[in-house]
Nucleic acid binder design. Structure first.
Length: 264
DNA sequence: AATATTGTTCAGCA
DNA sequence: GTGCTGAACAATAT
């Protein structure tokens, strides 16, 4: 699930549950999800410290520690956070567990283990090292800047939107949603899009993310004319009388309406 | 039982 | 060096 709106929700979740509490224990359940830092060093720096502040860049969540280090979290395809107290609330695939002095626990759960947690000194260095592009929401991207990102680019617009080194935060689901709302087929070539097409994509990117963030990325709460809850081949298009088609673009399943979404 | 899955990285190539 | 494509990674659900 974790694309930009989901991670923004995780950030708020962390803010409302886990800040300013003393960490009294850290359990690395599976070291595969730990990045460059060693599990021992991670434990050493977390223990006795507190989470003070949160930031997000694209699909990455950062928590600033009272000892000046930053905890970085990426959620892969199946990661999420769970703050709980009672044993019966332990999620099924905990990879990292942080214990607070109030008896509560913060679990990083990641079934498929494609997510990563790390500890760094310098956030901008981390973002550079990961080659992350601009965060369209956090960095308040203008249309001019957006449009310039796609100058002299090749490939499909969907692949471009999902390229994290161009824009950080758009994944498969929201790329489909933005293009569905912008009435442009995901397989359209970037070079064939005109200024108006790009403007529409820019505007829909902002409105879709704003809406998704406002409902904490809960799909059930999204408007009825969103593709998200109709992402199945043969399903009726929620915007027109067309049917939803499925096609592989850039190696990923893409869903779109071939009636109101124009192929360029 | 084969197939699909919301993400990133890296090899291969132009 | 840069940019693009597709496979690999892993564990589960249908």
């Amino acid at each position: 699930m974790p694309e930009l709106p989901d991670v923004e929700y995780f950030r708020k979740y962390l803010n409302s549950t886990s800040l300013h509490k003393k960490i009294i224990g850290v359990e690395v359940k599976n070291s595969k999800i730990i990045g460059r830092v060693s599990p021992a060093a991670l434990k050493k720096h977390l223990n006795g410290s507190k989470l003070k502040i949160t930031k997000r860049h694209g699909k990455n969540l950062f928590a600033g520690l009272s000892n000046k280090k930053w905890l970085t979290m990426h959620f892969g395809m199946t990661g999420y956070l769970k703050y709980y107290k009672n044993k019966e609330d332990v999620p099924g695939h905990v990879r990292l567990l942080i214990n607070f002095d109030n008896g509560y626990h913060l679990a990083y759960d990641c079934m498929r283990m494609l997510g990563r947690i790390d500890l760094v000194d310098d956030l901008s260095g981390y973002i550079k090292m990961k080659k992350l592009g601009i965060d369209p929401i956090e960095d308040k991207l203008s249309f001019k800047e957006f449009s310039e990102l796609f100058n002299n680019r090749n490939g499909s617009i969907k692949t471009g939107l999902m390229n994290q080194s161009i824009l950080a935060g758009i994944g498969n689901i929201y790329a489909d949603e933005i293009l569905f709302q912008a009435d442009i087929q995901p397989g359209s070539n970037i070079k064939k899009l005109n200024e108006d097409d790009l403007k529409k994509i820019y505007q829909k990117m902002n409105s879709v993310f704003k809406k998704a963030i406002s409902v904490n990325a809960d799909h059930e709460e999204l408007p009825g004319n969103y593709l998200l809850t109709h992402r199945k081949p043969g399903e009726d298009c929620p915007k027109c009388s067309g049917k939803i088609k499925k096609q592989t673009i850039g190696g990923r399943s893409s869903y779109f309406c071939n009636k109101h979404q124009k192929k360029k």
